[in-house]
Design a protein around this nucleic acid. Structure first.
Lengths: 420, 420
DNA sequence: ATTTTGTCTGTTGAGCCAACAAACTAAGTT
DNA sequence: AACTTAGTTTGTTGGCTCAACAGACAAAAT
């Protein structure tokens, strides 16, 4: 809508001057090269509508700032002088994402091109630790990532922390994280203190939101540029939802959107962690699957096993064609579709992305899920919504966190590089 | 995000030049005056961050275009030379909205200040007419509105048609309108032909979407500038939903968002119009209320009565304290809250607006509704969501249609007025 | 010779800055 | 009470800067 708003939603736009004009056009060129790949200045000019001379000047500044670099000569066109390819220079800038989850901590550093500089995940039983202790260990991971960025001589665009709970994004305060057993806590402030009041931006966001953003970036990169609306469902003990609508992360009025796990869609059965019955996650959460597929004394329910080991067990049985496992998966898939249909009716996304354990067991869930959606969505052909498994696994949130930090650079390239 | 994108979601921004810079700042000043009321140039400069001289130049151009005008002297400040107030000039430009609904056609013309120039509603039994006949009669109404704008010497910013169905906004094609009994139909093309291929922009949109937009504009005007997220529920035979997220109308990937009526939340009871059972509208639609509150031979079920007469009957009984009516209303209110809680959990709006018959019976629905939401929303304090009755009644969609046409002028004021 | 690229030069247009005249209030002076 | 003076705020003017644009042109290929 306006030159400089960036985040602030529905804002009345912001007065623009020469500086913001320049900033806008730097951003346009930088994103053009990111999205459409290396190309000559002349071609950028042609495609963006900017003047050739202007593109030259913009590219020069972006090269100066270490965001673009000159590549090979472009010999693709038959006639005339070949152009000098201009491409994204990944090495200059990195973003870092870090995640606190129920049974692990994780961190990732991505460079500007989206390539992984460092990715690390350590199992931690967060619910049985003091929050302070967990934050100490997370800070240690973040320091590692920052060091890795330093070693690479990259500038750090920012750090974003992913938390499975209700987060006030503006202040970085956590309101509630039931699965961690955490209440109100100023995560941003605590982390800044532990990291020695760093100068780079540090934000906190909801884990499913960041995972949705990562999936969005991934799908646009690999498949479809015209994709703007997406819903991501992460399956764990609970169910998290992240929504990208019109190309923007949907946060809601107070940042509490996407809480899909407690939609009352199931018949009153087992009591949910929230104290109610009939919540969606009581029929599609991992616990629900285990109860349907196994008896109490089944080895995959052994408390010493972690999530991945359990999933491996279920997968093995499904592959072997075990009828009870297959029936439980079909059941969960159908319930997933019943709730999914609600989301599709309300949000009409282009894609429904399965993350977390839903992605792992996707091959068996997808068919009943798609059928349930087709049956229940009122728009023709299910509103044109496809179901896709996320490829990112448990790294989705940290990748999204790193991505969102890097996004700021693409919105305002003047954040980076010396201003002599 | 960018200077010129306007609508296109998630787009890679657009190259900006001096013209777009100027356009942006014209828009900033115009919207500033609209939203914050008449004020002096000096104050506009101070509040927007633009330079005094620049504001003078921008105001001069906007006055030239007939969008602003000079008002009285501002004697509110104690010291110094009093400023000349600059205010919105409503007279210059108008927008028109028109609506096709199950039992009426309607039209409205609003001027730039949002004041009503003309508003008209005629009962028509659309489902029993040929679509062509209905469009003929709607075209007649639109011509009346356009004439009213002409008489006022106003420039016409655009016409937007509201339809209760699935609409492809870009092309103006209707895909499906079950309540009208209409299938695929290029409404925009048909209307353009009937209006003699007019030069002004003509768009088609979903009725609930436009109603949501009207409610959004109304609430921001009267209450709260910081409001950016809203859900509107229109109660009729079915239930429609419109969503404003982050200050933008949420349309979904294919424009089919907000179809909330068929969320499967109720126990399998009466069969819904869509052929399934358990749809939300089978427990909160007007039909459901009538079945709960009255017997088969009750006078308010007389087929010769229209919606408003029926509602008047129910209201009378509720006011008189009739126990069966009150119990039915409480029931519907609770179910409204159960579905509403799903929406609030997913979207976390600042406000849930009750439109259509929900607004009329709001006094009795609101309490059980709010309780159901408080009980079911996972975010603290119901996610901070208030429940509000819409004041706009059946005019909401046409107002929203007129508004959305006018919005284009606020985004790009250079659309209007001679460019000598 | 032709075509395409990328740079250079001068022009245009819009916002910024500083100075200033105009219009008003407040307070002192006659 | 009438007049003067100082102080404040408004809105305009002229000069400056910055960024995009248009067109010319050299370089590098076929």
């Amino acid at each position: 809508m306006t030159l400089t708003d960036g985040r602030r939603p529905g804002s009345r736009g912001v007065a623009a001057d020469h500086v913001s004009l320049r900033r806008n056009n730097l951003s346009v060129v930088l994103r053009h090269v990111r999205d459409l790949g290396p190309r000559s200045r002349a071609r950028i000019a042609e495609e963006t509508g900017l003047n050739k001379a202007t593109v030259s000047s913009l590219v020069a500044e972006l090269v100066e700032r270490g965001l673009l670099r000159e590549g090979l000569a472009d010999s693709s066109r038959a006639l005339g002088r070949p152009g000098q390819l201009v491409e994204l220079d990944g090495t200059g800038v990195c973003g870092v994402g870090a995640e606190i989850n129920v049974d692990y901590l994780a961190v990732a550093a991505l460079d500007l091109a989206g390539d992984v500089v460092l990715e690390k995940r350590v199992p931690v039983d967060v619910a049985h630790l003091e929050p302070g202790t967990t934050l100490d260990r997370l800070a240690e991971l973040v320091r590692e990532a920052v060091t890795a960025v330093d070693v690479r001589h990259g500038e750090l665009a920012g750090v974003t922390l992913a938390v499975p709970g209700l987060v006030q994004v503006e202040t970085g305060e956590l309101k509630l994280a039931p699965n961690l057993g955490w209440g109100e806590l100023s995560v941003a402030q605590e982390m800044r203190r532990r990291l020695g009041e760093p100068t780079y931006p540090l934000h906190v966001d909801n884990e499913a939101n960041l995972a949705a953003l990562a999936a969005y970036a991934e799908l646009r990169r690999t498949e479809d540029e015209s994709l703007h609306d997406l819903v991501l469902l992460t399956g764990a003990v609970g169910v998290g939802g992240g929504v990208v609508a019109g190309g923007h992360l949907m946060r809601g009025g107070h940042g509490y959107s996407g809480e899909v796990g407690h939609m009352p869609v199931a018949p009153p059965g087992r009591t949910c962690g929230c104290g109610r019955t009939g919540c969606w996650e009581t029929v599609v959460g991992l616990t629900a699957l285990l109860h349907k597929a196994t008896d109490r004394d089944d080895p995959v329910r052994d408390p010493s096993l972690d999530v991945e080991q359990r999933l491996a067990g279920i997968t093995r049985r499904a592959e072997a064609g075990d009828p009870r496992t297959l029936s439980a998966l079909k059941d969960v898939g159908t319930w997933l579709g019943i709730g999914g249909a609600i989301l599709v009716n309300i949000l009409n996304p282009d894609v429904l992305v399965l993350g977390g354990y839903f992605a792992v067991l996707g091959p068996w869930l997808k068919e009943p899920l798609e059928k349930a959606i087709q049956d229940r969505v009122i728009a023709p052909d299910g509103g044109g919504c496809r179901v896709v498994r996320s490829e990112l696994g448990f790294a989705a949130a940290v990748r999204g966190g790193a991505q969102i930090s890097l996004d700021q650079v693409f919105v305002d390239p003047t954040r980076i590089g010396a201003t002599p």
